[in-house]
Design a protein around this nucleic acid. Structure first.
Lengths: 110, 110
DNA sequence: CCATCGTATTCCCATATGGGAATACGTCAA
DNA sequence: TTGACGTATTCCCATATGGGAATACGATGG
C-alpha cells in the first residue's frame, strides 16, 4: 500500500504547506482562484488542484460568480485536528516535556 | 516533485493514522517496541519504521534499556500543529461556519 | 457566433510511501 | 561461545503525489 491519499482527511490535506497557505489566505476572506494565484506565488493550475483537494475534504466551500469561482474557508473542517492535538496539550504545558527534550539531546550526542 | 517526505515535519508525520495511534499509546506512558506491537495491531517492523519517522521529527524520544528501547512521547512536537490550527478556532466557533456548510450542501445537490 | 477571460482537467515524471517478508544487529542468559 | 530475544534495516512493489506544460471548458462581452 502507498501513502494515504491527500483527500483522505483533513490531516492529510493539511500536510501540504501550500494548502495551509491557501487556508490562511481564505481565513482573511473569500477569494477567487485568480486572487489566490496573485497572493501566493503559485501557478493557476496548482492552485485549482489544491483547492480541489481542500474542497473534497470539506475545508473550503465554493460559490459561483460568473466566470469566477469564489472560495471560502470552512473552519469546521479543522476541528478534528484541533481536537486530536488538544488531547496532548498537557504534555507540553508542564516542564517534563522540556526535561525530556534536554535528556534526549544529551543522550544523542555522537 | 513528489509529496513532501513524512519526516519533513510534524504535520506530515501525523498524517498517518497508525502514527497517530502510536502517539496516543505513548501519551499513556513509556513503551517498548514490543509493547506497541502488542497494543496496536501492527507488525514489529512497521512499528519500528513508524517510530523512526516520529523520532526524526522529534515527536518521540528513546531510551535504551538492555535489549529493549523505551519510547516516550514528546508532546512539544505537536505544539506547532496546535498553534497553527488554533488560528482558525474562531472560524468554527461562530455560527457562520455552520451556515456555510448548509449553503454548500444545498448548492452541491446533483 | 466568436474571441477572451477565469478555471479546471489532463499528461508526463521523479519521488517515496507503507506494508510484507526476510534478514541483520546488539544484548543478555546459560 | 552460543543461542535466543528485541529491534532495526533492507528489498520489493503498487500507488499517487505535486509541479510544469498544454489543453479543455464554461461564461461573458461584442
Amino acid at each position: 500500500m502507498a501513502r494515504a491519499a491527500t483527500t483522505t482527511d483533513a490531516f492529510n490535506a493539511v500536510a501540504e504547506p501550500r494548502r495551509r497557505e491557501i487556508l490562511e489566505v481564505l481565513a482573511r476572506g473569500e477569494r477567487s482562484v485568480g486572487d489566490l494565484v496573485g497572493e501566493l506565488e503559485l501557478a493557476q493550475p496548482q492552485v485549482s488542484k489544491h483547492l480541489k483537494v481542500l474542497h473534497e475534504v470539506g475545508l473550503v466551500a465554493v460559490r459561483e460568480d460568473g466566470r469566477r469561482r469564489l472560495y471560502r474557508l470552512n473552519g469546521r473542517g479543522l476541528k478534528p485536528i484541533h481536537d486530536w492535538v488538544a488531547r496532548f496539550e498537557q504534555h507540553w504545558e508542564d516542564r517534563f516535556g522540556v526535561l525530556d527534550a534536554v535528556l534526549e539531546e544529551l543522550q544523542e550526542e555522537p
